[in-house]
Simulated scan of single mutants.
Amino acid sequence: MKKMSIVISMAFFAYACGNSNQNSGDQSAATGTSTPQTEAAAPAPATASTDLSDNPDYKKGLALIAKNDCLTCHKVDEKLIGPAYRDVAKKYTDKDIPMLAAKIIKGGSGVWGQVPMTPHPNLSVADAEQMVKYILLLKKS
């Protein structure tokens, strides 16, 4: 009998806890007022700085980088052979896109150390620019 009363008490407690938000929501809907709990429970809208996955430049650039040999020498947040993409993003702006795209295609050295970046002559200018746009978006996240 004692176990039965404990089970019933726990069931009642779970039911009461589960309905507390629903009841306060029903009451606030009936009165036309909102409660701080309801507002706090609402998810914050995603901003461009927190969710880049819907950005077409992000998607296209990431796909191009994954398809090429870029990740052999670069990582997003840490230096490997070449600089981290986020460090590149912090150093340059959108006005540098053509110059950086040309550097991806032609290769180069000296800016980030003496190890030269391998040229990628088979990349189109448009693809190289798309890759740079992806990298520059990383400074905003």
Rank of each mutant, 00 (worst) to 15 (best):
L52W: 02
L62I: 08
P98N: 05
K90R: 11
G108Q: 10
K95S: 11
N122R: 13
C17P: 00
A48R: 14
V125C: 01
P119S: 13
D96V: 03
K103G: 10
H74T: 07
Y134H: 15
P56Q: 10
K140Q: 05
D96M: 07
G61S: 09
D51L: 09
M10C: 11
K106N: 13
Y92T: 03
I8V: 14
L100G: 01
F13C: 12
L123N: 06
P83Q: 07
I105L: 12
G110F: 03
Q22H: 12
S141I: 07
Q27R: 10
G82K: 03
A101W: 08
K79P: 11
F12L: 15
I97L: 07
D96Q: 09
T50L: 09
D94G: 00
Y134W: 15
A16R: 10
K90Y: 02
N23L: 15
D54N: 11
V7G: 06
T31F: 02
F13H: 04
I104V: 12
Y58A: 02
G113N: 04
K103A: 15
M10I: 14
A11N: 02
Q114R: 12
P119D: 12
A29M: 05
N55V: 10
Y58I: 07
L100Q: 03
D26G: 05
V111R: 12
I8A: 15
A30N: 03
A84C: 05
L52K: 04
G32Q: 06
D51R: 10
L71W: 09
L138Q: 06
A66N: 11
S109C: 06
K91C: 02
A11Y: 00
G113W: 00
K95H: 04
K60V: 11
